[in-house]
Structures are given as structure tokens and as C-alpha cells.
Design a protein around this nucleic acid. Sequence first.
DNA 1: TATTGTTATACTCTATAACTATA
DNA 2: TATAGTTATAGAGTATAACAATA
Lengths: 152, 152
Amino acid sequence: MTTAYPSAPLGSPENPGPFHLATDLRLACLRIARRNRFESVVEVAPHQMAVLSRVACGPASAGDLAEWERVSAPTMSRTIGGLVEAGWIERSADPTDGRRVIVTITDEGRERLAETRRARDEWMAARLETLSEADLEALQAALPVLERIATS
Amino acid sequence: MTTAYPSAPLGSPENPGPFHLATDLRLACLRIARRNRFESVVEVAPHQMAVLSRVACGPASAGDLAEWERVSAPTMSRTIGGLVEAGWIERSADPTDGRRVIVTITDEGRERLAETRRARDEWMAARLETLSEADLEALQAALPVLERIATS
DNA sequence: TATTGTTATACTCTATAACTATA
DNA sequence: TATAGTTATAGAGTATAACAATA
């Protein structure tokens, strides 16, 4: 058993078209994402990192964040609590609706976020440095397509 | 605040070289992997899926699996217990060393694995179907490079 | 005595249910 | 009465420490 997946997961075996591309591309992205996450030195938990990234784009309410991260309100409340305790975000009341809580990133949070991203970028940059010009050009050409897949 | 990351995470702002490619490529792979995992219908937990994938390549001992997944021995023991209870793998004693436990995938486990992979492949295939021939060619050309990054 | 794996216990992240405060 | 958020409680997944079986 040497293949990591069935030889013809979607189309027939004699159909090497976009189905194999789908499998191979999916696995490549999965493995890159996994190794990038595992092997970069990170002191921020994944769920914290996700919220920190979102809040870095601008203030958001607890409910917005829970919906965005597809997580329950209590879970987000707890995650926010941890980030506030760490000093990376701040809670404040919505002036127009006293029930709502507005979450804002702090300078310290922004710095921590930048550090984490820098570590992950460095992991990827180290790999790109070993590539030829032709390989880099192939990646440059594929990047907009990958971004379209990621956001479609 | 419209940028999702600092404008010059690694090099200086006037250095758009491989550093921006590293950032963009990393984020694209991360988002593709994340959406693929989230949006495909999956009834198998991530840690179970990882072990099932590994065992599908051939029998392995509990210790091998723990090391492979970078998880503690008790955690792997528990994960194995769940997969055995689900009927997807089987435990057996190593005939040459009574201390060791050999884990083997069952037909049912192989089927579940194939179903999960099929769902994820379909997610990706649906996105590829919307692309032009030129886009697909760009992906085909970049794929071996991505695979090298994933395994280097 | 060293190694392989499991059980005991504790901590974190998650969810649903119950509660408080505001609209 | 309905909504936004927090607290109470419980269920997974994880780890370290202690244990049992085998080499």
C-alpha cells in the first residue's frame, strides 16, 4: 500500500483531468498549511490567532466574532477573555447599544500578531529561497488563481 | 485598516521580492486548506482522520503513530480506542514483541476514508471547474513546486 | 532494568442551558 | 418580550504521572 489515496477518487482511472489536479492541489495546500503552522514557533493558540487577525482589521462585536469564527457565543466570550487578559485586545461598551461589547486590538496585540506572521513568513521564505527562477515564476503565475480558489 | 497584514513583514517596504510571495502563498494555502476542511461534510474528527490516513498506508504500532502525529502515547492510545470502537481500525498483538500493539485499517475504515477524501476532492474540483484553461495550466505548472515546498 | 502501552488525573477548548443587563 | 453577552455545567482532546506487562 504505497498510495496515500485511491488511484481514482473521482473520475475513472483513465481520466487524469482536473480530478487528479483537485486531489494533488488540495493535498499540497493542506500539507503546506499544516507544516507552516506546526513548524513556525507560535505562542498564540490557533483560535486566539484567528480572533486577533480578525480584530486587527478593525473593531468588532463579540457576536460578530462568534459568527465569523463559527463558534458559540460562550466560547467567543471565553476566547475574548483570554486575549484581554493577555493584553492583546480590549473590551469596551458600544455607546449606541449598552448590551453590545466592542473588541479592539491593542498595540501589544498588533505586535504579537506581526511576530507570529513574521515567523510563518520566514518558514515559507526559507523554502522559496531554495527554488529556481523558473519555479518562482510558476508560483507567481499560479498565485492569483490560488487566491481566487481561496476566496471564491 | 484594510490590509490583513503589515505591508513589509519581512523585507523593507521597497523590497517586493520573494517576501511578498512568501506571505501571499502562505495565506492562500492556509485559506484553501481551512475552507476545504470546514466546508466539506466530514464526520471524522481531524485527529482521527490523520491516524486513519496513516494506517491506510499500512499497519503501524501505537508508538509509531504517536511519534508520527507528534502526540503523547496516552493520547494516541485514546484515539486508537475511538477508531476501534467505530470499527475503522483493529488492534492486534505483535507476534514478535508482546508489548507492542499493531494497528490495521478495516474495510469499513478504508471506505470512510475514501468518502471523506471524495467530499474534499469534490470541494476543490467544483472550484477548478470555474477556471479557464490558462488558469488550470498555471496550477499544473505550479503543482510540482508546491509539492516540493510541502515535503522539503 | 528498560520499553510499550494503558489507566488516573488535570487542564484547555468546545457546546448547551440558565442567567443578567439592556432594547 | 427579545437580544447581547456572561456564567454554570458537561463533553471531547490533550498532557504528565503512575501503573502493568513484556523484553
